[in-house]
Design a protein around this nucleic acid. Structure first.
Lengths: 208, 208
DNA sequence: GTCTATATTCAGATAGAC
DNA sequence: GTCTATCTGAATATAGAC
């Protein structure tokens, strides 16, 4: 039983690609049909409307976007290990899906209503709560400098996500082609981890 | 001679607001007309097409977006002062125009051709070059840790811009209303500066 | 299920009166 | 310069044959 791919899946995959690249408003149903190698009427046969099709894609991707960070935070690894792991996991994900951050953030920006629906299934609030607790603990244990957990989380996310959000601008201003940019992103993990650790460490000691 | 605002300016301002919030594809000419308090035909009388109107708005905003960082970098302030000033200036700008980062980055993502046009007038490449030189110098002088200038610049930009790029998600996951978010952004400057400085400082000394 | 052909809707653009 | 009314084209959606 060779798992032949159903037409439905072909469509969703094509839709994913087109929506990710263009966003909802600029995406065209005929592009999606063409990408899927079928015609436009079939899109409507499977998914009643552009809105419905988009919802399916967006929901999937926003689940993919909400990282597996929560498990890492809930594990019993030491704090700096957790930090490293969450940075590594996120960077890996974005490397394999560079459009994901821009897609999700942009659609949230454009369409707050849709976001509300996502809110229920997302775990971002749990991640923030758990992260805050851990940071407070580490501070009290004297392992890291005093820092506002919310600010720290924003900085970490900015450091990992920003390069993908700004990819075209970065390539332009740094004079990079696709290959050079990818190389920079390969090297990013090391930079990000040591940068953040350094910013957090208390002056004298070096926790490992 | 009271400087009565010309219809043209009213339109451009309305267009700016609508385009910034919705992006090119989702923005509607009738929304812009309504926002401007005139009718749609007049838009076309002043600016031939949606494309033309958008170009004008985008060009203005992308110039605004390219910070006055270059002057700061070219000044004769000490390195860490430059760093602080450039962070402060950028955060100030984004606080007064929170949609700016998403608008510019998103349109660059969607429409690389338009970006090419901007490339010529933008100074981002100069900023990167100058910044790199300064970082190298500081490292050689023993004032900062060894760090790849490109990576560092990405981290700084991520730290300052990301909160505005992800504003809706952040509000949601941290449970903030508009006011609380603004407060967080007020406090961001202090966090950002000390975070980045700490990450850069060599272990023993503290340069000022 | 898949297609071609067609209807509908909507947004950008124009004509022409004032 | 500004308006109302209208055209045109494009994009979504449907009808109906196979």
């Amino acid at each position: 039983m060779t798992a032949t791919i159903s037409t439905e899946d072909v469509i969703v995959d094509a839709a994913r690609r087109v929506f990710m690249q263009k966003g909802f408003a600029a995406a065209r149903m005929c592009d999606i049909a063409q990408t899927a190698g079928i015609n436009q009427a079939l899109l409507h046969y499977y998914f009643r409307s552009k809105d419905k099709l988009f919802s399916i894609v967006f929901e999937k991707e926003s689940i993919n976007f909400r990282s597996d960070v929560l498990q890492i935070l809930n594990s019993d690894l030491p704090f700096f290990q957790k930090l490293r792991l969450m940075i590594r996991k996120d960077l890996e994900k974005f490397r394999s899906a560079p459009f994901l951050p821009m897609f999700v953030l942009n659609e949230m920006h454009n369409n707050p209503e849709r976001m509300m629906h996502i809110a229920s299934t997302s775990q971002h609030d749990l991640i923030f709560k758990k992260f805050s607790t851990l940071v407070e603990q580490e501070y009290k244990a004297g392992n890291i400098r005093k820092v506002c957990p919310a600010q720290l989380l924003l900085s970490i996310m900015g450091i990992t996500m920003f390069p993908y959000l700004a990819e075209p601008m970065i390539k332009m201003s740094m004079g990079l082609n696709g290959e050079a940019f990818e190389k920079l992103m390969e090297e990013r993990e090391e930079h990000a981890i040591s940068f953040i650790e350094q910013a957090l460490l208390v002056d004298q000691s070096v926790a490992v």
